[in-house]
């Protein structure tokens, strides 16, 4: 379209301006919180609307990193995110690989069983009673096992494995390799992009999860970072649903609150460039196959 009339140029300018405004609205809350966390308490009180660090100060972070409660929470979240992602990916991949084989007797039943869980679940209370009877109360496993496989991810990964030409597997079989070897030495290397995508999916979900922790974890020293964040920001502000969950926080200074939010968000912001690249693809894959 070579014809660049005045009205076309004008409409492009309006479009760019509107999209700019939308982007600003999206980014300002994050910018404000991050900038405030790197400012001094005095600067924050003086000039309210901070979008860039003013009177740069790391005091808030020095305080946050010196409190063992919050750092323990970060460590626990990191631990369950890394270990949980690895475990979830492994189990999902193994089941997806098996279900990708059309000649495996029983495959249909398992497929239906998986699909049903997409539209029906036992619900909060039966889950709670059952998982508590498994001994998950106050165990970090409670933050990993109840959502070990995401049925949706499983279905998409299965479809992906089915796309890999069957001949590759056939030739490995002729060479005497069993299914486990084929999966780990042939299928996995071929699916690294998919595995990366869904590992990120899983990792973000685990890092962001907090409700399972509220249900199953009563010991404060086992709280993941999201639960601590809720305690520090929401409950200390005399809001929220359950005051006095065993921790008595004083209302921390504003810069500290900003620093706590920033620290809990940082891992997401660090992996975001990768997330954005792969996730859109993953979502598209899902919506096409789903």
């Amino acid at each position: 379209m070579g014809n660049k009339s005045l009205s076309a140029k004008l409409s492009q300018a309006v479009l760019i301006a509107v999209l700019f405004a939308v982007s600003v609205v999206m980014i300002i809350p994050i910018l404000h919180v991050v900038a405030s966390s790197f400012s001094s308490q005095a600067a924050l009180i003086q000039s309210k609307f901070l979008l860039f660090p003013t009177d740069f100060s790391l005091d808030a972070y020095k305080y946050v990193f010196s409190t063992s409660t919050f750092m323990d929470g970060m460590k626990i979240s990191l631990l369950i995110t890394v270990a949980g992602t690895a475990l979830k990916m492994l189990v999902t991949l193994m089941l997806a690989y098996a279900l990708a084989h059309k000649d495996m007797p029983g495959r249909k039943i398992i497929n239906y069983a998986v699909l049903i869980t997409l539209v029906f679940s036992a619900g909060m209370i039966p889950n709670f009673i059952t998982f508590t009877s498994y001994g998950l109360k106050n165990s970090l496993w409670a933050l990993i096992l109840p959502a070990l496989i995401d049925p949706f991810n499983l279905i998409v990964i299965r479809s992906f494995i089915q796309e890999i030409p069957a001949e590759i597997e056939e030739s490995a079989k002729i060479d005497g390799a069993n299914d486990a070897r084929i999966l780990f030495s042939i299928i996995v290397p071929l699916s690294m992009a998919t595995i990366a995508t869904f590992s990120l999916f899983y990792a973000v979900v685990i890092w962001n999860s907090y409700f399972d922790a509220i249900l199953y974890i009563n010991e404060a020293k086992k709280f993941p970072v999201q639960v601590l964040l809720r305690q520090i920001i929401l409950l200390s502000g005399s809001l929220g649903d359950s005051s006095g969950m065993g921790l008595d926080f004083y209302v921390p200074p504003r810069t500290v609150r900003m620093a706590v939010i920033t620290a809990a968000t940082a891992p997401i912001l660090v992996v975001y460039p990768f997330l954005q690249k792969y996730f859109a693809k993953g979502v598209m894959l899902g919506s096409v196959k789903g």
Partner: peptide, 14 residues
């Protein structure tokens, strides 16, 4: 990609 806890917290401080 931000958790609801983070969003609720940002809302709280703002």
């Amino acid at each position: 990609f931000l958790s609801w806890v983070i969003i609720a917290s940002i809302c709280q401080v703002m």
